[in-house]
Amino acid sequence: MMRAYRCLPVVLAVLLPTTANAACDPSFVEGSNVVNLRPSGSFDNQQLIEPFGVRVRNDGDEVCTLRLGVGRTLTATSSLFPAYSLTGPNGKQTVSGITIPSDTAGFGHEFIVPANGEVSIPYEVRMAVGWGAEAGIYVDELVYQLFDAQSGSAIENQKIQLELDIPQTARIRFAGASGADGPARIEMGPISTTAPTRSPPFALRVLSTSAYRIDLVSLNKGALRRTGSRDLIPYRMTMGGQMMNLSGAADSVRVGSHTSSVGDVHPVTIVINPNPNYHAGDYSDRVTVTVTTI
């Protein structure tokens, strides 16, 4: 006996529930961030301006209406961090000290993030950085808090560290010297044969962000040389009341701290003793002054 079989295939369909996108799912793009503030080498009347942005994304399928507040973490701030202003989308921000992120409630700028989109909220730090600042790295910490604009509930916070790097740098200025378009010149005038000849009032003004050293090197080892000859007239130089030894390779003065905003003034005096045997003529010496931060 032969039997015929017909197979009826059975397909079992397993229906899995689909994951629905959240209506509004906001978050910060970065968990934390650092804004580097680095002044240029010149500290004269410098206004430091540094823009940055706070990025917020929305992984949901509906528009988010949010509010962004900002405050400072006082426990993470250097005591010598300079005063600064923070400008945001609504203009200048009032940045109060906070101890916990939820203290930022009540602050903020309202904005919209499109579905599955991202926005960057622009901010700008401004501060005056000039002579009188001490070299080093200073930090200030901002805390940005994200809120739901309707409910006012806190969503997330992000820390942004402002890091100010003041480099070691120094500058020399001369007071009482001529030669504005070239090397500073001290004119001694006619040399007396009967009394000491003294230089007119003259000083070095040093501006430095750290401790520094002043080195002086005399071309003729502490003497004036007559033009076109080997004749020498020795002289004495004091700086800030300290006698300088210019007969060797170099002499130096050390100052163990940074200067104020107006700098340190080092008065310089040059004295030539009388001698009736000096030959008439023009005498000169070149002293190289170098300031090095230490």
Rank of each mutant, 00 (worst) to 15 (best):
T77N: 12
V11W: 12
E118R: 13
D165R: 14
Q47V: 08
I233Q: 05
I112R: 13
P190C: 05
I98M: 02
T169L: 09
F81H: 02
T209Y: 09
N245T: 11
D231M: 06
R126W: 01
T18W: 07
M188W: 07
P89G: 04
T75D: 14
H258D: 04
Y84T: 05
T290Q: 12
L142C: 07
I270V: 13
V129I: 14
N90M: 12
G97I: 05
I294P: 01
A249R: 14
I233P: 00
T99A: 15
I272L: 13
L146P: 00
R171W: 07
I233K: 04
A23K: 11
E50D: 05
A177E: 02
Y138Q: 08
V63W: 04
Y283K: 05
H109E: 12
N45T: 11
R226W: 01
N275Y: 09
D285R: 05
N273G: 08
S218Q: 00
A223Y: 00
Q145M: 14
I214P: 02
A83T: 13
L142M: 11
L80V: 11
T19F: 10
F202A: 02
A149R: 00
T209I: 11
P114N: 15
E187N: 14
V54R: 00
S199H: 06
Q168F: 08
L8W: 07
G41T: 12
L80H: 12
R236E: 10
N21Q: 13
G130W: 01
S210I: 02
Y123F: 14
G88W: 04
I272R: 00
M2W: 10
S252T: 08
A13W: 14
L246N: 01
I137W: 07
N157S: 15
P17M: 11
Q150L: 11
P267Y: 02
E163Y: 02
G88F: 06
R126F: 02
T99L: 15
Y144D: 02
E62D: 13
L164S: 00
D251L: 03
I172E: 01
I137C: 08
P234E: 09
G71V: 06
G132L: 05
L68R: 04
A128T: 11
T197L: 04
Q158L: 09
M127W: 00
N90Q: 13
G53A: 10
N157E: 11
E118L: 14
S79E: 14
V253L: 15
I112P: 00
C7N: 12
I294Q: 09
T65K: 06
W131Q: 02
V10K: 09
S208A: 15
S42G: 09
C64Q: 06
E124V: 04
T73W: 09
I121L: 12
A180C: 01
R286H: 08
Q47W: 05
A154W: 05
P17T: 09
N277Y: 11
N245W: 03
I294S: 08
S40Y: 08
E163D: 10
V255Y: 15
S79W: 07
V29T: 10
P17A: 13
N58I: 07
R226D: 07
I191P: 00
V56N: 07
L204S: 03
T18L: 14
R3L: 12
I172Y: 00
T65F: 06
N220Y: 08
V139A: 10
G182I: 04
L207P: 00
L216W: 01
G97K: 06
T293A: 08
T292Q: 08
G222K: 06
M188Q: 02
G60F: 03
Q47F: 06
